[in-house]
Nucleic acid binder design. Structure first.
Lengths: 237, 237
DNA sequence: CCTTTTGTTAATGTAAGGTTAAACATAATT
DNA sequence: AATTATGTTTAACCTTACATTAACAAAAGG
């Protein structure tokens, strides 16, 4: 069974450095798509599925952070590595807030980059249900389409969901009838687990409950101190 | 929901730096155990469960890499961050080979470290769910689901259990028909064995008895001075 | 008996969750 | 550029859930 090479999106405006890096990665059995700026990077990202993004921070038209944010809106899971010439602390922090997996200062050693890539890919490999690519769910009399972000009741007109509403409901659906730990949603969706994100999540739970009200059999239950449970009553025989 | 603080094992031989770092981490709501060298670090590691290890590379008696290898033998999952004074490439590679999650050069910015810790914990949050212990029990005509914390009688509507109720009943169920020593519950659940926790436990025993009343065959018996016994009468012919 | 241990109920204090609205931020439209 | 719409966070306030403690009653066991 010939297993597929991992796909990397490399966004780097310096043509020399970019090409060298691309070749080096390809020599190491990665499929690399090279975009020359943030704009192009985002276009390419939308067109395909990638296992990893390597983004230069300083680029014309669209810098790495802005690009990362756009990428995150479409995909909460792809690992992102930032490349940067200068080691400014603010940048590093900004990067982690956007959900960076790692941060490298140029010039860096290519072997080190390879190691980091390997380590990140390995971590991804062990991730469970949560990163599943399932985007459609039946929730009682509702249909959730998580890719298009809408919820339909009895096949009626779709209700549009905001990104946060959508991801939260999707996480709940992935754990249907089971515990969806608070911490999981906070780290996966809000990327931080503190008092405020926690309160924010409660607000979203309230919104979802309102959406789901039309089907009395569908409930979001709280398990005090643990998390929430999406239950469909009379669901299984 | 500020649940249990994350536990960090910090192994750092420089007493000043180590203490400062420990205090800083504790201020940020981590429980930190500080070991002064590799030997001590491994002892402490064996004695407890940690969510993260931060290891200095250069230490007397046992360096960070050797320690990391030993730790990996016992636990393939704990994230490890290395601290090192000099930025030698070989070291970095060696670290990644041992399964490092990250690598920081001293001096580093403490905020950056915090961000890295958060990022790593987030990644780990995903696969923590996998724990495969026993969480479901049949107790006479009751069903206990210890993960979702509820108790069902004859498949009726579930009664919600509080965390303490739940854990206590689970412990009893694990020792069904056998002695469940007082001391065991107190150390496992209350993490302290004194007059007050003991009284508290009695209160919970009373609550459980009330829950279990519907099935006359199920009883929690006291063994004076020893502990309790969950018995199912006529259970095994 | 009479001291120690256990049983039970109620009162208290704290933490977590629910709900709503206002504030803030950002994108979309004019 | 100004205005509207949309999405998210923060704040405030209220309710519920939990755990501990106190108080008193009842058994157990020397």
């Amino acid at each position: 069974m010939e297993e597929q090479n991992k796909k990397i999106l490399l966004v780097e405006d310096d043509p020399n450095f970019g090409t060298v890096l691309k070749d080096y990665l390809m020599m190491n059995d990665y499929d690399v798509v090279h975009a020359k700026n943030g704009m192009e990077g985002f276009e390419k990202f939308k067109k395909d599925d990638y296992d990893l993004c390597i983004l230069d921070v300083m680029m014309p038209y669209k810098d790495g952070f802005t690009l990362a944010k756009e990428i995150r809106e479409k995909n909460t899971d792809v690992p992102i590595i930032f490349l940067t010439a200068k080691a400014m602390k603010e940048d590093v922090l900004k990067g982690y807030k956007v959900g960076a997996d790692d941060y490298l200062n140029k010039p860096f050693d290519s072997e080190v980059l390879l190691m980091k890539i390997k380590a990140i890919m390995q971590r991804k490999a062990t991730d469970s249900v949560v990163d599943s690519k399932q985007f459609e769910f039946k929730i009682g009399r509702f249909d959730l389409n998580s890719k298009l972000r809408f919820l339909k009741f009895d096949g009626g007109k779709p209700i549009k969901l905001s990104p946060k509403e959508n991801e939260l409901l999707r996480l709940l659906a992935l754990h249907e009838n089971d515990l969806m730990p608070r911490e999981l949603a906070l780290t996966k969706i809000w990327r931080d687990d503190n008092y405020f994100t926690s309160r924010s999540m409660d607000v979203y739970i309230a919104k979802l409950r309102k959406y789901l009200k039309p089907d009395a059999k569908v409930e979001i239950l709280n398990i005090h101190g643990e998390g929430f449970r999406l239950v469909i009553n009379g669901g299984e025989s």
